[in-house]
Nucleic acid binder design. Structure first.
Lengths: 360, 360
DNA sequence: CCGCCGAGGGAAATCGATTACCCTTGCCGA
DNA sequence: TCGGCAAGGGTAATCGATTTCCCTCGGCGG
């Protein structure tokens, strides 16, 4: 609640022309506002074709467009969909947001985009504001646990969780990729190639996609008899994955058993690690191979040293909108929707490893 | 106007709990809605401290928050600011959008983000929708000429143009960088180094930042006696700068007088060109030096071959919000606000050029 | 001829917050 | 003592669109 609120915007209130209202349309067409409204909304058996045409003509002549605010007030639901992203600086989240925006537009909806910066208090503030806007749904791309989130869930708001399941209720609608499976695929590839000296770089593992990616990676390796406890892991401080990757790589390079394959739990970590490795005089990918996750669209252009798991950013929008429709249609328990990822290998050679195991 | 409109959302209308209204707060505090409203908005001399405290207590107990929709309807102005970006897939625009979002949040405003895809019809649709939402302002990051834009300007809406001036009125409020100056700085650097074999890659030059960058570059070169008409320029089709850069580079490589320095009018063009050059067997930056514009934040990490002009993305939000306040305060003719860019040189060596001219 | 039904359409309530306008009380100066 | 004024607060209009009632008119079956 902003206590004083600046009230000095008066000079600007004198807008040149106000948008025409439904009342003006009705007057011009010689009908009541009720009838005009019904024509606009296509209510059947409520107007002669001739009447309807008069209304439509008036709309055209005045350049009328229904005011979203009045409509939202009455319907108790606006045409806005709130999208709360944990970190817009991450290009993969930005790409997902962009995909969502485009799909919403196809439905006549508008995206309101917020960056929670992974902070519960900021997320709370935005959730409350979105609810005050009577948004039609909220899409949380990387949600954190917070009181307002609980309120929204309890109030029966339409919520879709993306990339990270609802921290407060695992059964909430979810769209993402199979992070465990993706981790396992990298493990599989490394096993086939006989990679031994593996290292892992990660940022926060608390409730993040990274947690599951690591799980899938290690489970598959362990199942093949690898002692995963002996695999060196490094991390770095901070929310910025690039910087974290840079520092984590610094730690990794100090180890006596320096790995030759670095699996980074996100592309950004790999970017930071890449620079650190090169500063240390290493040749990439000659001396060290890298794996990432997300497969940023720029990788094929300027980072062909990076193998990664492609996340189908463009599929998120349609998938999420589809899920929204099913929720609005009253479907209750929606199974998590896992989009298909794809292991993208740009660099097959592993530095200084034993010979590849012949194809099975 | 969507003709039929699906009316099947009934099952979902049964929200569990409705948000409390001002009337409920007033009732609980034992005052009228008018008084409650005035307490909330901090109207002076309209309530005893004791009364005000009762209202505040009721607000706390009910968890009340003013509904933005009712307020917007009455005030004829919502707390939303529409941001229309020409291309969100471009990380530099996404970074600017992110900066704007963060600054708006500091003002208690909410960003509604739209991607116009450089299309006038999409921009029109969004502008009309934003106006129907009674947005407090619209920020156009790369506007194109369109009818609805004219309407908005004529109606006296608060508009701020970013990166690309208002195509319909050069005197509209503008925030950007000095593209001409930035182009000139690159020219200056090239002249100092004695670079001769220069090539230029560009996408559309129609009313874009690239147009001014090229102008600054060529003017400065021409002033130093270089025959700019002889400088090879190449372009590629499409809206995606990366792909355009890739194809443009293909064209450039076919020329007999292959340049050794490529100035790309955006970083993305450089990314595409980089891959094409490497596919042709060139070593970058050994065989070919690259200049870009925007200086994507990931450059220092994974693209240290690229010299670029840093655009201060983080400064856009504060600058734009500052401009909004001056507009709301009634200031009329705001001079264009040019943020300070910076030439970032990561690679000083020019391949196969004559010796650098000794420092002047 | 009566009752009923459907089509066509209008009047007014409604959503939630703001605000113009009005009323009362107490105090102070003339 | 009276007028005026400021503080404190309530009533109701208002913003724009939707929607619930309600009314009228024709036609049709009984």
């Amino acid at each position: 609640m902003p206590p004083p609120a600046d009230r000095k915007r008066s000079s600007r209130t004198e807008r040149a022309s106000l948008a025409p209202s439904l009342a003006q349309v009705a007057a011009r067409a010689g009908v009541s506002v009720a009838t005009a409204s019904r024509v606009i909304n296509g209510v059947a058996n409520k107007a002669t074709e001739e009447t309807a045409e008069r209304v439509r003509a008036a709309i055209r002549e005045l350049g009328y467009r229904p005011g979203s605010v009045g409509r939202a007030l009455r319907r108790r639901e606006s045409r806005i969909v709130g999208v709360l992203a944990a970190n817009l600086a991450n290009p993969s989240m930005a790409a997902i947001a962009s995909s969502i925006e485009w799909s919403l537009r196809g439905e006549g909806l508008v995206m309101s985009l917020c960056d929670t910066h992974e902070r519960a208090d900021v997320q709370d503030e935005y959730i409350r504001e979105m609810r005050a806007q009577l948004v039609r749904a909220m899409i949380l791309v990387g949600a954190v646990d917070s009181p307002a989130l609980d309120e929204a869930r309890a109030a029966g708001d339409t919520l879709v969780f993306v990339n990270r399941p609802d921290p407060g209720d695992p059964s909430s609608p979810y769209v993402g990729i199979d992070n465990v499976g993706a981790g396992a695929e990298i493990a599989e590839w490394l096993l086939e190639r006989g990679a031994r000296r593996i290292g892992v770089l990660h940022a926060s593992l608390d409730r993040t996609a990274g947690h599951w990616r690591l799980l899938g990676l290690f489970d598959r390796l362990a199942a093949a008899g690898v002692d995963t406890a002996a695999i060196p892991c490094a991390t770095g401080p901070g929310l910025d994955h690039i910087v974290a990757g840079y520092h984590a790589m610094g730690t990794m390079l100090e180890r006596p058993d320096r790995p030759s394959v670095i699996v980074c739990l996100s592309d950004l970590l790999a970017y930071g690690a890449y620079r650190r490795a090169r500063e240390a005089g290493l040749d990439v990918p000659g001396d060290m191979a890298f794996f990432g996750f997300d497969d940023n669209p720029i990788n094929p252009w300027i980072a062909d040293w990076l193998n990664s798991v492609r996340v189908p950013s463009d599929d998120f929008g349609p998938a999420i909108v589809g899920m929204l429709h099913r929720l609005w249609d009253g479907e209750e328990r929606l199974a998590p929707l896992l989009l298909t990822h794809q292991l993208t290998i740009r660099n097959r050679r592993l530095p200084g490893e034993t010979e590849p195991v012949p194809g099975r």
